[in-house]
Nucleic acid binder design. Structure first.
Lengths: 192, 192
DNA sequence: GGCTATCTACCTACTAGTAGGATGCTTTCA
DNA sequence: TGAAAGCATCCTACTAGTAGGTAGATAGCC
């Protein structure tokens, strides 16, 4: 169906825009020009901007957590899993001109301007990611790979904040190189 | 002079707004209502929005780096200095309803939508902070307080990204409590 | 008189969103 | 089989509201 293609195209362009400039600076007009359809046609698929952003967040959530769960399910060492997790973020950073951030990182920065249903999605995404990071850290602790001090769950929260922040900082200064250096430094700390 | 007061009032309100909702979602109309003057009067002090944001960034940069330099100049242990540095960020988070982020963190997220002179300010702020963090870490290494593995400058970049990210994540999830837990975990890692 | 600070009144550009029409494919049914 | 009805998609044309920004008048002070 061509209609499904259009819907996907709208989501793809919208996601790209949000990752670059944020929700507030992304407009239906921008999407309209990039996709090559009229503004009203976007309203046909997504009646309100909140609908569009919600669909965007849900799609990204499903996509990202599926990848993470795939990483965890593999019979790899905890170090390999943690490195793969970090490289999921890096892939996004490198995919554009180094000016794309994590979708949820961008939305998180604009959190106060969003309505309840969207805010809830962000908090859930953060919580789910920290939980999965906790799993990886626990595995590494048990196998003896990771010798970091402190609670694995606190460490998971630290790593998630670090990756989200590293993303935004790297965009301004240092780019993917700086991000990789930070991940490398993190790995050393985790191994202890 | 009443004029200086007005100018300061505008900057105060504008900073508060940017820390909550970001540059793009902050409008002259919002400031106008909060300060109690007409929109055109704000243009008298800050002809364009870029002028206003530039003044905002410069003021915050001076204020923040002065505090940091004050911390470094004290004859304290490296651990105390690092804890004080981290608490500078926390003070901002706690100052509102837990919905205020670091000014430069917010602006950093919107980086792509800004013009050159503003982008430069952000990168400089990041660089200056990482350099000062590096000083503290070097002191701790030399005194034997800090036993973390890896390069102090890489560690400084890690800590700065962590704090900026921790800010944004904590706003969505966990608040000041979560931020403090992350800082505590960080301190354990730095001590090694 | 000139300067500072503030105002009213306006402009253009852009925002999200709506109403209703044109097109064309699909399904229904005589 | 073929016309009709229904539906999905996309359109033009519009709305009301808000954005940043400007012109020019007014008031009070040095």
């Amino acid at each position: 169906m061509n209609s499904i293609d259009t819907r996907t195209q709208i989501l793809d362009i919208a996601q790209d825009l949000v990752q670059r400039v944020g929700v507030n600076a992304m407009s239906y007009q921008d999407i309209s020009e990039a996709v090559g359809i009229r503004k009203a046609s976007i309203h046909y698929y997504f009646p309100s901007k909140d609908d569009l952003v919600a669909a965007l967040l849900d799609r990204y959530n499903d996509y990202f957590l599926r990848l993470v769960d795939g990483i965890i399910a593999q019979p790899d060492s905890a170090e390999v899993k943690l490195r793969r997790y970090c490289s999921l973020f890096e892939a996004t950073l490198s995919s554009g001109n180094g000016d794309k951030a994590c979708l949820y990182g961008m939305v998180g920065a604009e959190l106060v301007t969003l309505k309840h249903p969207l805010v809830e999605r962000v908090t859930t995404f953060y919580r789910d990611n920290e939980a999965r990071l906790g799993q990886i850290l626990n595995q590494g602790r048990e196998s003896g790979e990771f010798g970091f001090v402190g609670d694995p769950q606190a460490m998971a929260a630290l790593i998630f904040s670090l990756l989200e922040g590293g993303f935004l900082v790297a965009r301004a200064h240092g780019g993917a190189t700086q991000y990789r250096a930070i991940v490398e430094q993190l790995m050393q700390l985790v191994k202890g």
